[in-house]
């Protein structure tokens, strides 16, 4: 049984279809990346999985359980963590308070989890009392990922973690994503930065106008001439 499975998923915003029959699966322990241009439906896919959006038809199965109509806070309790697009940390709360909010659904001792996040992102530990809004873009992204980890997700949804960040910072964050996976969290990564995402991922899907147009092992996709032309642009020339 797959950890996550989307079956013929359709999502509409009013009359406008955003997803048109998406089939996708993520196995336990994988990093799967979802690629596509702006407006292809990548964010909508993640929002539907985490319950922020409800499907018009089709099914979202998490560990075999249909979660299409479950409210977002309950999806999180089931074990799906979502790092939304644009980071969205709590700007006026300190780093510690942000992490504390991530564990809102859990009671008990948070110290160990906080220390775990600080071991992944030492810079957050140095800034634990600083307000989230005063962090740099990269630090905010780290905080958003750390906050999602506080809920002990089995599946982590990452929406464009590289957005607006300097290449070096992106590299650092992608290395940490690999570490998070090695510690046992499955990852579904939405990216525009196709090369780096495919280098990190095991498998990939390509979304176009709300439909999956291509899928396969990441190495195959990385070598596919159509992908190179459409999504890798000038990087293909290297």
């Amino acid at each position: 049984m797959s950890l996550l499975q989307l079956v013929d998923l359709e999502v509409r915003y009013g009359a406008i279809p955003a997803l048109r029959g998406v089939n996708l699966s993520v196995e336990t322990g994988e990093i799967v990346t979802l690629l596509g241009a702006n407006g292809a439906g990548k964010t909508t896919t993640l929002r539907t999985i985490s319950g922020l959006q409800h499907p018009a038809s089709g099914r979202v199965l998490f560990e075999g359980r249909a979660i299409g109509d479950v409210a977002p806070h309950d999806v999180l309790a089931l074990g799906v963590g979502h790092v939304p697009e644009g980071r969205r940390i709590f700007p006026q709360m300190s780093v510690l308070e942000n992490l504390e909010m991530g564990a809102y659904r859990r009671r008990g001792n948070l110290r160990e989890d906080v220390e775990h996040v600080f071991s992944l992102f030492p810079v957050l530990g140095q800034r634990r009392r600083q307000e989230g809004g005063t962090l740099s873009g990269g630090e905010q992204q780290m905080l958003a990922i750390g906050r999602a980890l506080m809920s002990h997700p089995r599946l982590l949804l990452l929406d464009e973690p590289s957005m607006g960040l300097a290449p070096l910072v992106v590299k650092a964050i992608f290395e940490i994503i690999a570490r998070i996976r090695s510690q046992g969290t499955t990852i579904l990564l939405v990216e525009q930065n196709a090369t780096q995402a495919l280098q990190l991922a095991d498998r990939g899907y390509v979304l176009e106008n709300g439909e999956i147009v291509m899928s396969g092992a990441a190495t195959d996709l990385l070598g596919d001439p159509r992908i190179r032309a459409a999504y890798l642009g000038e990087t293909a020339a290297h």
């Binding site: 922020l52 006026q92 709360m93 909010m101 906050r147």
Partner: peptide, 24 residues
């Protein structure tokens, strides 16, 4: 209380609050 923290989170960013498992 926990309720107060949930309110603060909602006030600061509703989507983030929702993603943190708060029943907004």
């Amino acid at each position: 209380s926990r309720i107060g923290r949930a309110w603060a989170a909602i006030r600061e960013d509703e989507i983030a609050a929702e993603a943190s498992g708060i029943n907004v």
